[in-house]
Simulated scan of single mutants.
Amino acid sequence: MAEYWYHPDREALQKRLRRVEGQVRGLQRMVEEDAYCIDILTQISAANRALQAVALNLLEGHLSHCVAEAGEAGSEAAAAKVKEATDAIARLVKS
């Protein structure tokens, strides 16, 4: 298995994702318990922001490490990594 740049911080990343998982379970509970719709929407917004924070952290690391390393390797590798990052940003913006 490859070790990516975030490997040393993997536990912190997993902790953040477990927190998001808990938020989603809380949302399921809220629906089960017939919580007020605006309260559910507020919690959905919080879960989305938490996932976006994880995504931005990963994207920043990707640019700082993967794209930067590819730039040192040559323009063709760098162009591929920039395209990869651009596509990921486009997917994030659409969501």
Rank of each mutant, 00 (worst) to 15 (best):
K83Y: 04
M1G: 14
G26C: 09
S95N: 12
N57C: 04
A46V: 05
G61Y: 11
A47I: 08
S64R: 15
Q43C: 04
S64Q: 14
A80Y: 01
E69D: 15
R19N: 13
S45A: 14
A12P: 00
R91N: 05
Q23W: 01
Q28C: 02
A90W: 12
K15S: 09
S75T: 14
E76W: 02
S95M: 15
V20P: 01
E84L: 10
T42H: 13
L92Q: 07
M30N: 01
Q28L: 13
Y4V: 07
S75A: 14
L51F: 04
L58V: 11
N57P: 00
R91S: 06
A55T: 11
Q28T: 03
E33L: 03
A68E: 12
I89W: 12
L63N: 01
A12L: 05
T42P: 00
E3N: 08
S75L: 11
K83T: 10
E11H: 10
G22W: 02
A50G: 07
V93E: 10
L92N: 03
R19D: 15
E11G: 06
L51Q: 06
L41P: 01
S64M: 09
R25P: 00
R16P: 08
K81D: 02
H62L: 04
A88H: 02
R29S: 09
R49G: 12
H65M: 02
A46D: 01
V54Q: 06
V93G: 01
Q14W: 06
I38G: 09
C66D: 11
Y36F: 02
C37A: 14
P8S: 05
T86L: 13
V31Y: 00
W5L: 03
A73M: 13
L56M: 13
A70L: 08
D87Q: 14
A47Y: 02
A70S: 09
L17S: 05
L17E: 05
A78N: 04
L17Y: 07
Q14H: 13
N48W: 00
S75H: 11
A85D: 09
Q52T: 11
A68W: 02
I40Q: 01
W5S: 08
N57S: 08
E72M: 13
R29H: 04
E69S: 11
